Simulated scan of single mutants.
Amino acid sequence: MEIIVCIKQVPDTTEVKIDPATNTLIRQGVPSIVNPYDKYALEAALQLKAKHGGQVTVISMGPPQAQEALKECIAMGADRAVLLSDRSFGGADTLATSYTLAAGIRKLGRFDLILCGKQAIDGDTAQVGPELAEQLEIPLISHVAKIDLEGEQVTVEREQEESYAVINAALPLVVTVTKAAYKPRLPNMKGIMRAKRTEIPIYTMADLDVDEQKLGLKGSPTQVRHIFAPKQRVQGQMIHADSPQQAAAKLVEKLMESKII
């Protein structure tokens, strides 16, 4: 069983800053973490490996510093890791990102199952997993809470608004994972030491069979025109009264003063 998990290194959401000139995230000097949903996908992969055997490979597209995120995944139990990193990959939207990831996965060779987090916490688009399946021309099941394998067949529980849908599918397959049944494990000392010794191979554009016009900004039809932080809300006011009736009367009076009603 060859399982590939797509990983993204994202800014810590408490530290996100936007460059007003370029409308892009400022990553320099900002703490980075492994996208939490991708950790759920990795945990799912590790549990499947423990039950059925095989190999878990993590892959990411990003700057050289993303090697640290991949090493964290190695420490958790992944067998190997690959980073796709090249200046030509920079500025990619979800379409260009999925195109590049698909090329990297083809470079890796055989695979049975590809797992992604349901979305990244920086962009929140939930588009890369589905677009990756399209690029590789294989089926997709999204928002999956639990995965079981039986030979070449996969049975998943897919989250819906108030229920779960049980779906059967054949391999190969792309699955995007939620956090429902998978609590990421903590790295142990053996895993941490192995990660420190691991050299992460880096694939550049020259290593992949790609069309340069479909990479990075050139291959990104989605362009951000403007981005801004919402204005901070004015602090509300507490209404004090001896009874609910008096509180309601004071509230109506203030709403009328403010010409809300």
Rank of each mutant, 00 (worst) to 15 (best):
K190Y: 01
D38V: 05
P63A: 14
K214S: 03
E150A: 10
Q135D: 08
S60N: 10
I105E: 05
L173E: 10
P172C: 03
I260W: 03
N23S: 10
I260S: 04
I74E: 02
R197T: 05
T198E: 07
A75N: 11
I26F: 14
K183D: 12
L149T: 04
R80C: 03
M1G: 01
R197E: 14
G236K: 13
Q160I: 12
G151L: 08
V128L: 05
T100E: 02
E72F: 14
A41Q: 12
D148K: 15
L132D: 08
V210T: 07
V177Y: 08
M76K: 03
Y203H: 11
G216H: 05
G216T: 10
V224T: 14
I239Y: 01
G104T: 09
V16S: 02
K218G: 06
V82C: 03
E2L: 00
A165Y: 04
G216N: 05
I121L: 12
V82R: 06
D207P: 01
P11A: 02
V177G: 00
H143D: 04
V30W: 11
A44P: 05
A181M: 15
V30S: 03
R233T: 14
V30G: 00
I227D: 00
M205Y: 09
M193N: 09
K259I: 02
S88A: 13
L42C: 02
L84I: 08
A241K: 07
M1Q: 06
D122L: 08
P31E: 05
K231V: 12
P11H: 07
Y182W: 08
A102N: 01
G151M: 15
I141A: 04
D148Q: 14
A103N: 10
Q213L: 08
Q65F: 02
T100R: 04
T198N: 01
T97W: 04
E72Q: 13
D86A: 05
R185E: 04
A170S: 11
V166R: 15
S243C: 07
I114Y: 08
P36M: 07
P244K: 04
V210I: 14
Q237F: 02
